[in-house]
Design a protein around this nucleic acid. Sequence first.
DNA 1: CTTCGAATAATTGTCGACAATATAGGCTTA
DNA 2: TAAGCCTATATTGTCGACAATTATTCGAAG
Lengths: 224, 224
Amino acid sequence: MTFFNEQPITAADKTFFELRKDIVEGEIQAGSKLSETELSTKYQVSRAIIREAINRLESCHLVERKANVGARVVALTPDGLIELYQVRESLEGMAARLAAKNMTESEIADLNGLLNRHFDEVQTGESYYQEAGDVDFHYRIIIGSKNKHLITVLLEGMYHLIRMYRVQLGMAGPRVTTAFDEHKHIVKAISNRDEELAEMLMRRHIMYSKANIETKLETKLVIN
Amino acid sequence: MTFFNEQPITAADKTFFELRKDIVEGEIQAGSKLSETELSTKYQVSRAIIREAINRLESCHLVERKANVGARVVALTPDGLIELYQVRESLEGMAARLAAKNMTESEIADLNGLLNRHFDEVQTGESYYQEAGDVDFHYRIIIGSKNKHLITVLLEGMYHLIRMYRVQLGMAGPRVTTAFDEHKHIVKAISNRDEELAEMLMRRHIMYSKANIETKLETKLVIN
DNA sequence: CTTCGAATAATTGTCGACAATATAGGCTTA
DNA sequence: TAAGCCTATATTGTCGACAATTATTCGAAG
């Protein structure tokens, strides 16, 4: 889930990435307090570095901070996930619209290539078509929007949080076959430079995903 | 432009607000370097506080940072403003949709009251209907969405940057009469709980605003 | 005259100590 | 016994100094 040029330079970078990983994957529990002294001993760095890392985590909305009190990992609530998907629907819809306008033919060809590989995998029953592939698909369209702001908000500001939800609520990589068809239609719209349709299909795609998650949440609530 | 409960607690808060104001209003030039030692003497605080403030400014996208090199105020480019408005169109469209769903009747009544006051001001020729009123209108709808994520991304992550563009490119408060009608129709749609229409009208409203800015940018380019 | 490289200066990154604030526990008092 | 205050403790906020990295300047060689 470390996207592209995300290589740590300073010790604060490194600590930030480690902390983010541990939070997203649940090693540090959702809702728990982040003690600066405790973390500084655990990660073998000074408190200043921990503080900087926590500041960055706050700007990704992974932790919340109160002055003179401290920072806590955000709590995972069903409503929070729904709200997140509402924003995602809006932003990725716009990303698809802009991708239909701004992606190069070569980028579109690559996207089609990705789709074909996924198709083969689904056909041969490997069904490796999981989160990694899905993220890759959405990632390329977001980048293809060529809108720096949109890219930053989605990839640095929301995707890690969404992934945190998915990992910790245990809902990785389902909806294989239907999602594949939806992806195919989105790419088709982008190929045709049909901005309107690309946005509409992407929004529906994410709405379906949201609905799927909602039902899963309900059954989980019933079980537990 | 300090919205609601934004009162500084720590010295870092205070310095962050001051720095943000100075950047947004152009007292610190766009594109200029932010020297930590220089700022620490200027604002009479230690470098640690300046560093924290700069970190926060980075998460608002007001400054950009490179490891071991330093931070610079973002450069204002016409393309940057266009990209910003694309994201804004998407997010505020969703905000209007959610506001139509989630605002209370009392909040809607308040919004209508605001609109009537603006109408009076426009009628009496005061034309005080400027940025403050416009921001207030959009602000209420964003809050009315009741989506915490959306609210944060828009009010903490984008509005100050948009304002920086508007202030420094000298395009405050025009489009009075037409914008008023657009606002009126948006509120009407929200009153009717017509989510679809509310989103559509808000998106158009922001698209018109964007187009207006684009022509202003062109004439500015011709003049200079 | 230009270009490359080394020494030097300036800036950012990191650290430990101290100050200010919030939390917890016990004590007094009604 | 319960409520409120006060002290003690722990945590966060702030600071100045040192280390590491980058930018600059000066000199030498082609």
